[in-house]
Nucleic acid binder design. Structure first.
Lengths: 192, 192, 192, 192
DNA sequence: TATGAATGAGTCTTCATTCAT
DNA sequence: CATGAATGAAGACTCATTCAT
């Protein structure tokens, strides 16, 4: 016996696996059902369509990401510690949800206007969380006064993405094996 | 009358437009044919399949990107000028070929092992071009001695991607309107 | 608490509403259950399948129709009064059970051979009731001696159907508002 | 080699056969394709959907019916001859297109509002053609002055429907074997 | 060489029916 | 008895690809 909500999560988790492995179009509803250990039709008791399942999966994971980032930021007050935590979690998130991450990071043709709007707002939301942290740090003198905060946040996200992607997908490392120090070093001190 | 090669380029350019607008799966061969102003069947005189057309299109654009980056690097010898040129061209490339760029940057489920291998090599190739530039600059003293060159290159690519994506897609700017200075500032001086 | 038989009738009445509104194929068992205020599975305690429910519903209504026609015919002995009663009741029946009426009047692809046979017999039965009335009236001199009784009965049924259908569906009248006199006039006197 | 238009008619004729034999819902697109001697997908080159094919089929046949009725009415100027012609053609039409006829005569849940409107207008159109004939005849003195023309037309249509339906479906006659005289007799002289 | 009509494999989705609670 | 969550068979529809002209 599983509750309605458990079954929902159960399906979303199967969807994450199958969409991540095959991509939206190659993923068959039957595959997702099999992965969840249920019948094809059951998915439709919980989600209106393949597209809606995809949306709900993204929402679920974006919320997961946000919640975890918040926890990390609350645990630490020191900037370097915070960046370290973000690096590690973001890296782990990329390695586990690369397609999800792509959906968050990039535009998609699957996504209708309502969803696009929601995603846009969420990205802005995450962006703003980082922005606020950087503003605080700037006030506290942890960051130089003439720093363009916006560019800094975007550099943070972009650098982590590239660095962890390369280590995970090109070099085959697992996210625990990746040393975040070079990322922090470049970010903090620049290249000059 | 057009030559074989002109027609090929003609089809690839149509494919760029349609794949960029609709994504691989939503793009129909008929759409591409119409965009190229030819009949559906004609595409198959030049490309074996939709997938092959997609591959050839990526190759075409990756080569274009590489050629242009090389020209920029040859034109300038000063690091900051080079970074400025890369910023501008990369930004323009993103704005014109966002889906292409995603295909180059990210993994894709459409892509078979041979293609994956080719793409991987190309990415490494581009990565190496940047790496060599940074090594030279480090020797010349334009970069600090203790800099992790690899992290620096990945930060460069990641930061440009994020910054230009945000400006273009979230703020609706055209790539000419985007000021590359904040990107360079963060990259060169870091955030501290 | 309701008895087995009350629940059965309750379901049939819900079925009438839903089948009438949506047609056999568009009507969902869940809709019927909801209309009856019970659970989906409960219907299967009373009827073997959707098709059987449909059959039982038709039987119920055909019997209703026959019973009411008999009552009308017993109440009146004068031909014109009887025709008037038939007009009114048949018109009301059409307006309330148009899809039912169509099922009785026309062939249907839903209907298997046993049901077809039963329906055929019922139609013949109703036809015979009218036929007997007309024969009696012919004997009593209420109808001309050279009248083809069969054609007369079919004309009666066909004329009422057309006339009431037009008034109800094309002109939007309710069956009480429809004047049966023109129908009787044409039937009795012909057009010449 | 067949022209676009020939293929269209070809498909509609196959659709008439299959829809008539199986009804809308039981008819599979594959059946219709097979009947037309073509592939499933080809139908979609000519019709947007199953529903649209159904609509186009109805339109085709309604137009056929109207054209033939007009030819019959133009050929004869005498009322009885005209009624005879209508009887025979309408009977033949019923025997060949019973489901079509039902679609014209009855309401249907398949039919959307635009189509309903079109069908309604066509029915009114056919009704008006008959009405005009009767008005002319009334002027010429072929019909009694106090006749309700509307009721007369509806009686004509209804009586033919019932009579030919019974002869064809209950008694298994072919439409050529059916004697139209009893229908005309009842219609012209009434039952009294 | 270029075409586009024809094809049919592949998949989402619906919903009657079952059965464990 | 009553329920409704789970099921999976069935069918409409899409579109890459072929091939006769």
């Amino acid at each position: 016996m599983v509750s309605k909500e458990e079954r929902r999560i159960n399906i979303i988790e199967a969807a994450v696996k199958v969409f991540s492995k095959k991509g939206f179009h190659k993923a068959r509803m039957e595959d997702i059902a099999k992965e969840a250990g249920i019948g094809k039709g059951t998915i439709y008791e919980y989600f209106d369509s393949k597209k809606h399942l995809f949306y709900e999966m993204i929402k679920h994971n974006v919320n997961l990401y946000k919640d975890n980032i918040k926890v990390i930021l609350e645990k630490e007050s020191n900037l370097e510690e915070r960046l370290l935590g973000i690096c590690r979690y973001h890296g782990r998130f990329i390695s586990e949800h690369i397609d999800m991450a792509q959906s968050i990071i990039s535009q998609s043709h699957l996504i209708d206007d309502e969803m696009k709007c929601w995603l846009f707002n969420e990205r802005m939301n995450i962006f703003t969380i980082f922005l606020d942290i950087f503003k605080d740090s700037q006030k506290k003198g942890e960051l130089r006064k003439d720093l363009n905060i916006e560019a800094a946040v975007l550099s943070l996200i972009g650098t982590i993405n590239q660095y962890y992607s390369k280590k995970i997908f090109a070099e085959g490392l697992s996210y625990e094996e990746i040393d975040p120090i070079p990322v922090l070093d470049v970010l903090l001190k620049g290249i000059e």
